[in-house]
Amino acid sequence: MKIDERKLKILQAIIHNYIINAEPIGSRTISKKYDLGVSPATIRNEMSDLEELGYLLQPHTSAGRIPSNKAYRLYVNGLVNNSHIDTKKGNKVDKKLIESIGQIEELIENSASILSKLTNYTSLAIAPQLKLSKIKHVQIVPVDEMRVLLVIVTESGMVKNTILRLDRSISKEQLNIISNLLTEKLKGKLIGHIGDVLQVKIIKDMYEFKDILESLIKNINKSVNSKESVELYSNGITKIFDFPEYNNIDRVKAFISFLENKDNVIEMLMNNGFNSMNNLAITIGEENSYEEIKNCSLITATYKVNGKTIGKIGVIGPTRMEYSKVIPLVQSISLDLSRILNKYFE
């Protein structure tokens, strides 16, 4: 059975009502509240069809219906395909972020705070700190005949040490030459862009050390993309208490306990898929991998520097989330972050 326009309008009315009120709704109430141009009996028949198709659930006998996860997915896909960003609201957010810029960590933390305040949901953001660091100095030091220690010092004073195993021995003098050239070429560059710079500019000039440079790229890429190099920011965790479906203390405990597990949250955010058109990712209810958030929806968007994705920001909350409000806000703040960070790293 196909969803025609009338069924779709009835379904949208039920979703809208449940997002606002968190209560099941019956055909008579729909007829009174929403001008659909059909009788309660017709609405009741259409609701039965929608329930049979899996778009509605009846939580109690003789009660009204509520949307299923399948209904939210249909609704959200329609929103994403037709969404647009409110430029006036986006400009206000942009100004708030620019006013707050100091350290990169502060900018991303403030972005999460603003997003939570604007949406009234729990916000989450991740940023690979190593990727966002600018290089000050590079040194390669011999450990033994076939191993060297790569030392990268960033402008913020962060030091990254990595042991590299070589396929051949290289003299201390040659390692110093490589170190000086790497410092000259990479100074002021983001660690996250080392691979591109080395492959394009340096390997050609130092082809005789191609094997070492390729090993260096591999190890740095592994380091900057690991969970250990990622910082997690969250805001508004207690906002979950505002929603009636979280009056259940066990459900609240499971939600908060999950968010306190940094590794799980980072893995969830890093593995959350992307919409190919706008880098937006939305998982609803049972689509989530973790049992603790099977009653939640997660909306995230990426932010970038020089076209490279360096982090994600988004919100998590009940499946009856105000998607029409949240989706444009998440998109807007992610774009603002990208714009500000690109200016910062010019």
Rank of each mutant, 00 (worst) to 15 (best):
T162V: 14
N180Y: 00
N176E: 13
T154F: 14
D167I: 12
I152P: 08
V148H: 06
H193N: 12
V200L: 11
N176Q: 13
E155Y: 03
V151G: 04
F209W: 10
L149E: 12
V138G: 04
L182F: 09
L182E: 06
I212G: 02
P128K: 03
S169F: 05
S171G: 15
K201P: 04
K189I: 02
G195H: 00
L213Q: 01
D211N: 11
L175E: 10
I152H: 10
V148R: 02
K189A: 13
G195P: 01
P142F: 05
K185H: 07
L175H: 05
I178R: 03
K160T: 14
V151F: 04
I163V: 15
N221D: 15
V153Q: 14
D211F: 12
H137G: 02
K134V: 06
I170W: 03
G192M: 06
D205T: 00
K172P: 02
L181V: 12
V141I: 15
K222A: 14
L213H: 01
I217A: 09
L186Y: 10
S223W: 06
Q174T: 10
V200D: 10
I191D: 05
T162G: 02
L132R: 01
V197T: 15
T183C: 02
Q199A: 09
K160R: 10
F209N: 03
N161E: 15
V197F: 07
G157S: 09
L150F: 07
S215H: 09
K136M: 06
L175S: 04
R168F: 14
N219W: 06
K189N: 13
I152L: 15
